[in-house]
Structures are given as C-alpha cells and as structure tokens.
Simulated scan of single mutants.
Amino acid sequence: MEKFVIGEQSKRSSTSDVQKSPKKKMKLEISERMKEEDAEEDEDAASAEFSHPVPWRKIEADRLDCDYALLFSKQEADQLFKQLEEEVVYSTGERAKVHVFGKMHDIPRKQATYGDVGLIYTYSGVKHSARPWTPTLEHIRDAVTKTTGRTFNFVLVNRYKDGLDRMGEHRDDERELDPVSPIASVSFGAARDFIFRHRDARGKQSCRQIEPVKLELAHGSLLLMNPPTNTFWYHSLPVRKKVLSPRINLTFRRIIPASKK
C-alpha cells in the first residue's frame, strides 16, 4: 500500500509540472517509451542468445534432468564430422584400455581426450592427459557455450566404427569433475540409442521399480546432462547390429584443476 500511495503522490506532483510545461510532458513520454523499448530489446537479445537451438526438449524423471536439441544443421554436422575425422588423434596402448574388476581390457571404441593445458582426467582406472584443442573442437565447444551459457575446459571424444562398438553402463562421477557443471554431449554420424538406468533399479538387487529412459541421439544433436543426473542415473550406448556407419560423440566437461582441489 505504501508504494501505491507514494506513486500517486509522485504522479500528482509530475502532473502539476506538466501542466506548466507541455514540452516537458512530451519529453517525459518519449523518454519513458524509449526506456521501455530498450528494455524489450535487451530482453529479446538475452532470449535469443540462449534460444538457439529451438525447440529444446526437456527430459525428466526421478532426479534425472536433461535438455536435448539439434545444435547443428545436417550440412553443418556433415562438415564437422568430416573435419573431426581428419583432426582427432585417438589413444593407443595403455590409454586405449579400461580397468575392470582388476583386469585391463581394450575399449570397444576409439577414444581421445582434448582440453586446456595441464588437465588430467582419470577414467576407468586410466589417467588421460588433455591434448591441445583442435580448431574444430574449439568451434564446437564455443557453439555449445553460446547455446547453453556454460563453459567447458575438457572434452572426451568417442568414435564408434559401427553398431558393434559400444559404451557400457556407467556414471560420469569422477572426482575431477565439477559437481555443479552439466556435461554436454554432442553427437555426429549414425543415430544411436542412449539409455539411462536409475542406480536403484539395476541388477538383481534392485530395490525400486523405475523404468529406464531411452533416447535416440541424432546427427548434430546436443544432450545436456544437468546435475544431479550423473549421481543417480547410469547411462550406456548398447550394441545395435543394424547400425553400419560410424558415430563420433563429444562429451564436454568442466574439470577442476589439481591445484584448486
């Protein structure tokens, strides 16, 4: 009520002044209109910055929070896929293995790690140092940042030669990862099924009935996995024998440098 009374008092005061000066009244009206237009332009600009790509598709379940959209057109995605095939250098030797149940196994896909200087990511018992960003990886990273408003300093690249290459169930919950940052997954090439399974609904000892969430990740798409998704949900890319062409997936992450832990 106090704000309303003050407003009325102010209005009466200004009315008195305007009656004395019609030119002042016109200037005040123009000024107010310009302020309103500027505010609308600012709002539209902010909205436009984070509205591409549109429309976003919201994917939610019990403590699963994801956003999905097409980040690149088919033409753009085709070109970026070609450039990635030329630029990315995949790991070999020990860095191309994972540590499972006390034994080392070959990764059923090709893998590479890129990012800011000095970053190290430990994945499945193996330490991976970041190679310097390539021009194409920088371009894709910046497109993700412009679209989401989030910054990333590391990317894990996975190349699947066909539907026989796969990714087993896991959570991206390593200690190096910033717990409040989402993980941005960008896909190129063959569309593949991506399956989320809640940690309480896995295996014979499951204690809850929670249906898995299945998505098809399309060529040029972006999947944003927001916290706390990776705390409660495992995800996988299962074998699909009918898929005969390759796929490249980039998961952009934010790693906490060792000096800041």
Rank of each mutant, 00 (worst) to 15 (best):
F101W: 12
T151F: 07
D42G: 04
Y234R: 02
H219D: 11
K127W: 02
S236F: 06
T148G: 07
E216K: 14
R192A: 02
P179D: 07
V100H: 10
N158I: 02
I255T: 04
D200M: 05
D165M: 09
A96V: 06
Q209G: 04
V126P: 00
E29C: 09
K74Y: 06
D200N: 07
I30W: 13
S31E: 09
S73N: 06
Q205I: 11
S245F: 05
G115P: 01
R109W: 02
T148W: 01
H128S: 00
R150P: 03
K204I: 12
S259L: 06
E174L: 10
D116E: 15
R12M: 12
I120P: 03
K161F: 03
I248S: 00
D200L: 09
L237E: 04
K242Y: 14
Y90N: 00
A69I: 03
R254Y: 08
F154N: 01
V239T: 11
G118R: 13
R131Q: 15
E176D: 10
Q111H: 09
A48L: 04
F152C: 05
A201L: 05
E49L: 09
G149F: 08
R159V: 07
T145F: 05
E87D: 08
K241G: 04
E76W: 11
D38R: 14
T122F: 06
Q205A: 12
G203N: 09
E60S: 15
E176R: 07
D62L: 06
R33A: 15
L119Q: 12
D116V: 11
W56A: 14
H198T: 01
P53S: 14
T136Y: 02
A143I: 04
L250Q: 02
H105K: 13
L244W: 10
R57V: 08
W133K: 00
F152D: 03
G220Q: 04
C207V: 15
K241R: 12
R57L: 08
A46E: 04
R131K: 15
Y114L: 01
P108I: 05
I59T: 12
L137W: 00
E41Y: 08
L215Q: 06
A191K: 14
R159Q: 08
F252W: 03
R95T: 12
H99C: 13
D106K: 09
V54W: 05
